[in-house]
């Protein structure tokens, strides 16, 4: 069996008005033992030479490791608002350079423009209760696609208010979760220029084993919780959800589309195996520029939605 040298795995984002965030991990041999704390074991926290360059004017941002969030970024955890909010701009391209253990890892991305005003892009958002699982439901929204080719979108959501039945308190999601089966779409799927393109928006499974209520496993089911009454008559508020619709470049689209393909084909002996088509030279992963629209909405029928142009930094960052 092959004996491969561990490679650096990049998961990094750059978006206007927010600091750069990059998580670095290390790959392992497929046949290496899965350790007790696999996720923590692979984190790389000792990278000292990591920088992002704006290609148009060669301005450089050196990044440092943040112990709390275990990511490389430009902000100081004690003063998170102190970062250069003008560095990431729509339409610019950005190079990533990492030197680690004598290896140089590079990547390039750009931040796609979003159509303005955003209200023209998102036509409407509405919530539909699930027929089979009352009390839960999905969001649908109507999206107007620009009539230019090359638009790639990504759909994510994050419950910024979520009442956890076990702890009986609000425990919001700590990061965005990609919509399951179809988090990324592009013009080659035949919706270039479509007006009022309507799509189903499942929050996806975030992998968190969750609370149970009347035999329903809400977290695993993955939809959004509507308002309900608990066993002692208290009203449980509905989820408040931040939906993120991002314009991404083609490399990012291919990468995330491949993650969905691999999840579908894993373990199927009759399927063709697929590698993730990443944009990291000398490593694995994705260096992604995104231009995002944020929409805040409550999981209830006849809901109204608001477009949030600048959610607070920790709400939008992870």
């Amino acid at each position: 069996m092959p004996d491969n040298k561990a490679k650096v795995v990049v998961e990094g984002y750059i978006q206007p008005n927010y600091p750069i965030v990059i998580q670095l991990t290390s790959s392992k041999g497929y046949f290496d033992e899965i350790t007790e704390n696999e996720l923590m074991d692979v984190f790389l926290s000792d990278v000292t030479d990591i920088k992002v360059i704006r290609n148009s004017d060669k301005e450089v941002k050196n990044l440092v490791f943040n112990e709390i969030f275990r990511v490389y970024s430009e902000f100081d955890i004690n003063s998170p608002l102190l970062f250069d909010s003008t560095f990431a701009q729509f339409g610019e391209s950005y190079s990533l350079e990492i030197i680690y253990n004598g290896d140089t890892i590079t990547a390039n991305t750009n931040i796609p423009y979003i159509e303005t005003p955003a209200e023209q892009v998102i036509d409407s958002v509405w919530f539909v209760e699930d027929e089979l699982y009352p009390g839960f439901g999905d969001f649908y929204f109507s999206y107007n696609d620009p009539d230019t080719m090359g638009n790639n979108i990504m759909l994510e959501s994050k419950r910024v208010y979520h009442y956890n039945l076990d702890s009986e308190k609000n425990i919001p999601d700590w990061k965005f979760v990609k919509a399951q089966w179809g988090a990324v779409r592009n013009d080659f799927e035949g919706f270039n220029g479509l007006k009022h393109f309507e799509t189903y928006f499942d929050r996806g499974i975030d992998g968190v084993s969750g609370a149970t209520s009347e035999g329903k496993r809400r977290e695993e089911f993955g939809n959004f919780n509507m308002s309900s009454i608990d066993s002692i008559g208290n009203t449980i508020p509905a989820d408040t959800v931040l939906i993120r619709l991002s314009m991404i470049d083609e490399a990012s689209f291919n990468f995330w589309r491949d993650t969905e393909y691999q999840e579908q084909t894993n373990g199927n002996p009759f399927a063709e195996p697929i590698n993730l088509s990443h944009n990291i030279n000398g490593g694995f992963g994705i260096w992604e520029g995104k231009g995002s629209i944020y929409i805040k909405v409550i999981a209830q029928e006849d809901t109204s939605f608001t477009i949030r142009h600048n959610p607070e930094i920790f709400e939008a960052l992870f």
Partner: peptide, 9 residues
């Protein structure tokens, strides 16, 4: 054959 594994998201 699979050669490596890594974590994303």
């Amino acid at each position: 054959i699979p050669t490596e594994r890594y974590i994303i998201d």
